[in-house]
Design a protein around this nucleic acid. Structure first.
Lengths: 103, 103
DNA sequence: CAGTATCCAATGAGATACTG
DNA sequence: CAGTATCTCATTGGATACTG
């Protein structure tokens, strides 16, 4: 399941689900705390799993656009379910008087 | 979202969802590769988040039973959705002629 | 612009030994 | 039985510098 979770993948996926296509630099700007290395790694991983499509334009300067694949879009419902659970859970923790933890 | 994912949490949760209640040692036997340390850590974490209930019997030798909380049961649909996506994804990878990866 | 390559610090997780 | 307490090693991830 590490395919869609982890520190960065959900964020990347949410941006791509909301934007149709995004350039590498646009993703960097949308997720300021991620390093190029991590962004590249995660995108390559998602590409390998046919969730994200990588389109390279043979131009100078280079342009690369990332978008969800047809298959990747099927993840949307799962991701949304996880997200809404997460949100409700924050409220629940609050009701219990507990603070969100790191791990 | 690390609350319900990671290396061991999904496995633990599936066992508890299928068993009503399980002792520490039963969980160990059900998940042979997990160490006591990890099992304890993960269970404490799940307990903190009100997903798992820990019942200690004041006996010798000690007995501790773990079960899903009422609140924790609400996770079932999310977990099932993740699981069925995972299963379908294996087939999809196969169709693509790609092998499952570590990361 | 969109990456690689390298190094290094922090974290995660296994093995082992011990305890109420 | 159901854990703690340490120690250690492998893996992650961040920072930085370089490149087609």
């Amino acid at each position: 399941m590490d395919i869609i979770v982890g520190k960065w993948k959900p964020v990347i996926l949410f941006h791509l689900l909301n934007n149709d296509k995004l350039r590498f630099s646009e993703l960097q700007r949308a997720i300021p705390d991620i390093s190029k290395k991590m962004l590249t790694n995660e995108l390559r991983d998602l590409e390998y799993h046919d969730i994200v499509h990588r389109k390279v334009y043979a131009e100078v300067p280079p342009r690369v656009e990332y978008s969800m694949t047809e298959y990747g879009l099927k993840l949307k419902s799962v991701l949304m379910a996880m997200q809404s659970w997460g949100l409700e859970h924050l409220l629940h923790l609050n009701d219990l008087g507990r603070l969100p933890k790191k791990s």
